[in-house]
């Protein structure tokens, strides 16, 4: 018989970050040709964990793999996760094509959210490109349920074509409100489109805000966020009040796989939302 090891190991808590929790797909909406919004309800229990607008989950498609996907639902709807997924690879293809009743795994929520409290008492701008809207949708829900905490709320959303707009119906409702302004622009359109055409940064001169007292959240392709930030700076928005959501191909969500390194940051841990000031110089570098 072997004797006891010196100071036998102390058993750890059984909790592991490496176990996706099963959820059932309760609803699926086709947003565009390649993008769908899926709603997930817990298989066990009745509610999901809390999350902050801007955080993401690792969604697991059994037999396929995992992908980091922003949370796009309302923080106060505790019964479900809502995610909008665009087919852009092995895992997102599968996630975008799930059917109601399918079971997926969820790990999360992970990352840091938008600093909404900083915008309280100020003008709030959301400038969004493409699939940057889903991670900002929870912000809109929060803002609308506490509308009195903010001054002007202005949203500019740019997409590729009218067919690539997500949340179409909901956007119509938002556009109908008098307590926020929601502008939409597309890169190109056909004759059926009577909205704006161009790029989203063009909308900035037209947005109503007081530069010195404005907080801006940007989410979209890096080149779009760069251009937007510059345009906002021109209108007097303090660089320290511009926030961006960065994207890299996250594999773990918990700062241990290294894929989401961006300069000093591990985006899954320190981001994805970061002050623009802290990433500005890296966005200027090639292949960083």
């Amino acid at each position: 018989m072997p004797s006891e090891p010196f100071g036998a190991p102390v058993p750890q808590e059984s909790g592991t970050p490496w176990a996706p929790v099963p959820y059932r797909v309760s609803e699926r909406t086709q947003e565009t040709a390649d993008t769908a919004t899926i709603e997930l309800e817990p298989l066990e229990g009745t509610r999901r964990p809390d999350f902050l607008p801007g955080q993401f989950n690792m969604l697991y498609a059994p037999n396929i793999g995992e992908a980091a996907i922003s949370i796009a639902g309302s923080p106060s709807d505790l019964r479900r996760w809502v995610h909008t997924v665009r087919s852009a690879g092995k895992t997102t293809d599968a996630l975008a094509q799930v059917r109601v009743g399918d079971v997926l795994g969820v790990r999360g929520p992970y990352g840091k959210g938008w600093p909404l409290h900083e915008a309280e008492g100020k003008d709030l701008l959301l400038v969004v490109g493409g699939l940057g809207l889903p991670p900002l949708r929870p912000v809109l829900y929060e803002v609308l349920s506490h509308r009195d905490r903010f001054r002007r709320v202005e949203i500019a959303y740019g997409a590729r074509t009218p067919k690539d707009l997500v949340y179409y119906e909901e956007i119509q409702r938002w556009r109908g409100r008098d307590d926020l302004r929601f502008q939409v622009t597309v890169d190109r359109a056909g004759t059926e489109w009577y909205g704006d055409v161009g790029i989203v940064t063009q909308r900035i001169p037209d947005m109503r805000f007081e530069g010195s007292s404005t907080v801006a959240f940007l989410c979209g392709p890096e080149i779009m966020m760069k251009g937007t930030a510059r345009a906002l700076q021109e209108r007097g928005v303090l660089t320290s009040r511009i926030y961006v959501s960065m994207e890299r191909n996250m594999k773990c969500g918990i700062g241990q796989c290294g894929h989401c390194q961006f300069g000093p940051y591990l985006l899954c841990r320190d981001g994805p939302v970061l002050p623009y000031a802290s990433v500005e110089r890296f966005l200027a570098l090639r292949e960083f």
């Binding site: 037999n63 995992e66 796989c257």
Partner: peptide, 23 residues
């Protein structure tokens, strides 16, 4: 410490394994 993940489903599709490997 960089790693990536690898999903290895069985051919029958009933079971699957999710690995981490050095990247």
């Amino acid at each position: 410490f960089c790693s990536t993940t690898e999903e290895v489903p069985s051919l029958s599709g009933e079971t699957s394994e999710h690995f981490r490997r050095w990247d």
